[in-house]
């Protein structure tokens, strides 16, 4: 078997395979653990029942939908109270409700957001809890 222009062909193939397998060698040898959002805040320490307003799997995948729903309810319909699926009532407020417990935004929000490479625009309008502001 003869390969014509072998040096160019092999160099081209190496570049091609190198680019296409970038994620394999970029992470080679790494053991990547899933992010663990920290629940270590003064308010959460004092809680008996550490249950978020909705079950955790729902909050993990759909918290943004919930916040969007809250935005519509508060800003567009003038409602202030959210009734959770288990009947408990909360004030619909990112700063007043969510961040009251999750005051450690860098260790709670940030860990998953950095891991997944997303950067929500919350802090362009809302105030980040003081302990996180550099």
């Amino acid at each position: 078997m003869r390969i014509y222009n072998a040096p160019s062909i092999i160099a081209g193939l190496l570049v091609l395979i190198g680019l296409l397998t970038f994620p394999f060698w970029y992470n080679a040898g790494d053991v990547v653990a899933a992010p663990e959002p920290s629940l270590d805040t003064p308010v959460l320490q004092g809680l008996q029942d550490k249950q978020c307003i909705e079950p955790t799997p729902y909050m993990r995948s759909k918290h943004m939908e919930l916040l969007r729903h809250w935005r519509d309810e508060v800003v567009r319909k003038g409602k202030a109270i959210y009734v959770a699926s288990d009947g408990r009532e909360y004030e619909m407020s990112l700063q007043g409700t969510c961040l009251d417990c999750h005051s450690n935004t860098d260790q709670f929000c940030g860990r998953c957001h950095d891991y997944a490479g997303v950067e929500p625009g919350c802090w362009t309008c809302h105030l980040q809890p003081e302990e996180n502001v550099p």
């Binding site: 899933a34 992010p35 995948s61 891991y115 997944a116």
Partner: peptide
């Protein structure tokens, strides 16, 4: 149709780190 993005990345990272 939202999915759990962190879980998706766990699966993807598992693939590229051969675990």
């Amino acid at each position: 149709i939202r999915v759990d993005v962190v879980a998706v990345k766990e699966l993807a990272m598992g693939l590229v780190t051969f675990s």
